[in-house]
Amino acid sequence: MNEVTVAVRARATNPTGRRAKGRGGLGQTAAYAVLVALALFVVVPFSWLILAAFDARATIFVKVPETWTVGNFRNLFADQDGFRLILNSVIYAGGATVVLIVVTTMAGYVLSRFDFPGRRPLMLGVLLIRVIPPTATIAPLYVIATDLGLLNTYRGVILILAALEAPLVLWIMKGFFDTVPIEIEEAAWVDGATRFGAMFRIVLPLAGPGVAAGGLIGFIGAWNQFLVPLVLISDQDKVPVSIGLFRAWVSYTRVDWGFLAAMATVYVIPAIAFYVIARRALQASIAGSLAGT
């Protein structure tokens, strides 16, 4: 049965759509109730974050500020420790992203362009590795990092965060290279470009938005990480925001809640912004074309 006949038959049996609407009336009201309740469940926890961040006398409790202020944010960037935490997070996540983009574009390009024995098992193996949670391997990872002299170092955390995000980002990169037809590259070879020249000047620019999306997704993962720096970094000067938030929370009674909320807000913004930019790529790579991209 083709689409037209379906549509015609649908109209024939249900000329105005009123029957379906009438029957759905109560159901739809209930559906709205469910959606509104869920929306509240989702939104309300953000209230403390936003209200406290702009409150001159914030507490752990949700309250509308008596005096609104941006002072918490000013303090955050003026304060040595607060600024240090943010800077550290930028170093870790930024460094990991640079490493990720380099290694995953290289590997993704080859996996997209060459057919070689073991390619499929390798792709599937990477996928399996992607789902290993860091909790399962954190104990041996600590010992290995110690043996390699990576404890309390920026480069150690950068490399490990990059490694943790690499399987997912590799799949994203490979997927984007797949969308660039190899014929374009072959035409460049005919015109005298070298293999590498064609890759850098033709393929990479075409796959550019995809590479950027992959990088952003890797950044979010590294930016949000808590366990790895918790275990590997004890040096107070090298702690990222995630650990800073935890330490502040643990020292409950001595906390400047407005400062903390401002820090958490600043910490959330890049994660959400980058997600909004890169979300199509993320969905595609995790659930594949099944998720309808």
Partner: peptide
């Protein structure tokens, strides 16, 4: 909530 870090 999707991109919100677990600590936040």
């Amino acid at each position: 909530p999707l991109a919100v870090p677990e600590t936040v």
